[in-house]
Design a protein around this nucleic acid. Structure first.
Lengths: 138, 138
DNA sequence: AATTAATGATACTAAAATAGTATTATTAAA
DNA sequence: TTTAATAATACTATTTTAGTATCATTAATT
């Protein structure tokens, strides 16, 4: 079950690396190439991901020599859900299918109710996880 | 987020229909064509799905004239998770990616722990849902 | 015995999603 | 002016999804 997509996964790795360097060495600016070297991620692809995070207001980007990406929001305030939303939308496991047509049973569907409740819980739990908590393992 | 795949969705619809007829009219055997007519699902596709359920031991199939599918397990004992497992494996949202390579951080990854706990909870909740509870909406 | 109406098994296929790559433009420092 | 970075956007290969198609088998009916 693909709950966390690859984009999110790669972005998390990049951010955790950046947070680590930022907290331990007070490093501020990171080029895509550096992160790629350290984390072994595909370069052009990661660049696109970091661009997305910049558009989302989690990072700032600076062009030109000495340019790169840095945190706009402090990494302790970046939730896993922020990153997930950037790449896969809000957590939503309540999908019903049936070929585009609306489910004729939406109102009384017990599955839907259950999934909605589970969804809230997932949301709450994932909001507790931040880039820093991922780094520190707690 | 694709939590319930189309196969599962279609299979659930078929089984709920069958359970309804079974409980209200004491109907026992259902052809694919009948279910397709009533539920508007793609025929050849549904046939494959019901075959899978038969292999899984939820249904029995009978070939030939007057053949069709009928419940092996009573519909009140068929859990949503049984159906999901047939088509999408066990509920597992704890996937880590990184291009095939094992995540170097598996042990202390807080995300992994959190997802494992959530996963257990989802499993427990979905096991409460059966074909009959879906039919009755409770 | 032949016909009909059902499933069984398996191969095939079109479309969409995923996971990237490639190219050209822009920008800022040295 | 050169170099080293990101920005934007188009392109592409692979995989997954959502089916369809074909032929075989089986059992009841005639």
């Amino acid at each position: 079950m693909k709950f966390i997509v690859r984009d999110t996964d790669y972005a998390v790795r990049a951010l955790v690396y950046m947070a680590k360097q930022s907290l331990s060495k007070n490093k501020k600016v990171f080029t895509v190439d550096e992160v790629v070297r350290e984390e072994g991620l595909p370069g052009r692809f990661l660049r696109k991901l970091l661009q997305t995070l910049a558009k989302r207001g989690l990072l700032v980007s600076n062009k030109g020599k000495k340019g790169g990406f840095s945190f706009l929001k402090p990494p302790a305030s970046i939730k896993l859900t922020d990153i997930m939303e950037a790449f896969q939308g809000r957590v939503d496991i309540t999908n019903c299918l049936l070929k585009g047509r609306p489910c004729p049973n939406k109102k009384k569907c017990i599955l839907r109710k259950t999934l909605k409740n589970i969804n809230k819980l997932i949301q709450r739990e994932l909001e507790k996880i931040t880039v820093v908590s991922l780094l520190e393992g707690r």
